[in-house]
Amino acid sequence: MKIKNRSWGDRLYVGFAYTVLILLCASILVPMLQVVTISMSPVEVINSYGFHLFPTKFDFSGYEQVFRKSIIWTAYANTIFRTVLGTALTVVLTFMGAYPLSKKTLPHRPFWTALIVFTMFFSGGLIPSYMLIKSLGLMNTMWSLVLPGAVSVFLLLIVRNFISALPESLEESAKIDGAGELYILWKIIMPLSMPILATVSLYSAVGHWNAWFDSMLYIQDEHKQVLQLILRRIVIDGTLDPAAGGGADLIDKPVNGESMKMATLVVSIVPIICVYPFLQKYFVKGTMLGSVKG
């Protein structure tokens, strides 16, 4: 009797989970398909009302316009480099900040934490930051893109609380076995923190991938600029007001700005979307914990 009851409740719950998740995915896939379809459709399809889930007519001029710029490959390389370097830096520094602050015995822990959290709420704004980067001699270098945002208070606190939620018994038993601090850090805490460090990597990588404002501000040389900035320019050029450019542009070719915008979006997000599946193995419940203990 009891077993039957339980399985009914469980089934209902699991059925609910599936229903909600399928509905959510459907509601997401519809606009995503629309974006992909518009990116490869001619203008008359785009301007017609209704959903465009699957392409009916093909027109790749949007993609042509994006890839016509030779600089786009340099920009891709810059973005990848920035993302890798920036993410590595963020993961290392975030962990270095979070681990000591997770120690409840740390003297003046609230003060040191407050010192960091305070920066979430008071910032000097654009002008002092620009002058700082300038006086540090970071203008026009990759460092101006990865250093200013190297640690996020938000992620640091998340990691700190994740570590403090780890079972203390593991650490204690290791200490009884005579393990040193470094050993505990490297062999116990680090592996256990993999899920949250994967999260930090993902958040940081996505942030770096999408960033463009800093590149615009700090990088003058077009060959050092990042993908999102170049793509923004392509979109802007393609949808420029003809009046701004003077007479010759008034002899319009049919403006197909939408397909180009969507093509730009597809080009810019496909690589970063592919990152997630590789991190997913760290989100499998309890794997890490099991492997450490085993």
């Binding site: 949250i196 994967a198 999260t199 989100f283």
Partner: peptide
Amino acid sequence: IIYLAAIAGIS
């Protein structure tokens, strides 16, 4: 994702 990571950390 943050919560998925936290759940993954449960013993």
